[in-house]
């Protein structure tokens, strides 16, 4: 893989992460029992979809085959999406959603902060914009995570289960593959080992504040970054892509 191919793959993957998480959150728009959380979820989902659009537009330019952001979102198959398995996990209950967001966004914010210093100007620009949004999300999601953990016996036990079940999907965020390595070497990209250290320290502190127990690292699932997804993702893109697949080229 050469430098240009790695950049395209890297940018597409950033778009995939943002789109898949955004789409998951869109599924529960208008389903929240409280207005404040309803707005928070919809606002956050919109940020992710917006970030996906910026990454995909750039990927289309890098690829140079005339594909736009919609082509990337609606006309690629399941195994062409290279997002983390964590992000395609079903929404579950509120504690599941908050735990998922906390685990991912604590990583994503560190990644974006590192990307603001990378040598690819466009990626750095998108990262500057996106990190401000994620910082705001994280404040909200961290507060909720602590409140649920340090809340009632019921909420404590349920969010502990959320954390235990999602933990196995956090390993692949920090496992560098060829694309990460080339991006780090050629574009002054993020050092995932360093990010992992900071992430672990930050998460350990938040989990302790939430009076919860940190799960063991004994088994970590992987494959999302290579396009091998769980069963959940097939259903998800079937719904997401239905319109464009059935009525190709449909527009407003």
């Amino acid at each position: 893989m050469n430098k240009e191919q790695a950049l395209l793959a890297y940018v597409t993957r950033l778009g995939d992460n943002a789109l898949v998480l955004g789409q998951r959150m869109v599924e529960v728009v208008a389903a929240y029992p409280e207005l404040e959380e309803e707005l928070a979820n919809a606002n956050f989902a919109l940020d992710f979809i917006g970030q996906a659009r910026m990454f995909y537009s750039y990927a289309g330019e890098l690829e140079g085959k005339g594909h736009d952001e919609d082509d990337f979102a609606f006309l690629r198959d399941e195994n062409e999406f290279k997002h983390f398995l964590l992000l395609e996990q079903p929404n579950g209950h509120f504690g599941d959603s908050i735990a998922k967001l906390l685990l991912f966004e604590s990583f994503y914010l560190l990644l974006l902060e590192a990307l603001t210093h990378c040598a690819d100007e466009r990626v750095a620009e998108i990262a500057v914009r996106a990190q401000k949004e994620i910082r705001y999300h994280l404040r909200h999601n961290t507060q909720w995570f602590v409140r649920l953990g340090d809340g009632t016996d019921e909420s404590h036990q349920r969010v502990q289960t959320s954390l235990d079940q999602l933990w196995q999907f956090t390993g692949e965020m920090f496992a560098p593959d060829e694309i990460d390595n080339i991006f780090e070497a050629e574009f002054d990209g993020p050092d995932l080992f360093k990010i992992r250290e900071t992430w672990q320290a930050n998460i350990a502190a938040i989990v302790a504040e939430a009076t919860l127990l940190l799960p063991d690292d004994d088994h970590m699932a992987s494959g999302g970054k290579q396009g091998r997804h769980s069963e959940h993702f097939g259903y998800m893109i079937a719904e997401m892509q239905y319109l464009q697949r059935t009525h190709a080229g449909a527009s407003w």
Binding site: L35, E36, L39, A40, N43, L46, D47, K132, R135, Y136, R139, H140
Partner: peptide, 28 residues
């Protein structure tokens, strides 16, 4: 961004004795 804003002045009476109802509103 991390800690939120306190003491925001009311646009009607200028009082800073105000409280957050929701971190989210009608637009992002």
């Amino acid at each position: 961004l991390l800690q939120g804003s306190h003491g925001i002045a009311c646009p009607r009476c200028d009082s800073t004795n105000t409280q957050v109802v929701s971190e989210f509103g009608s637009t992002a």
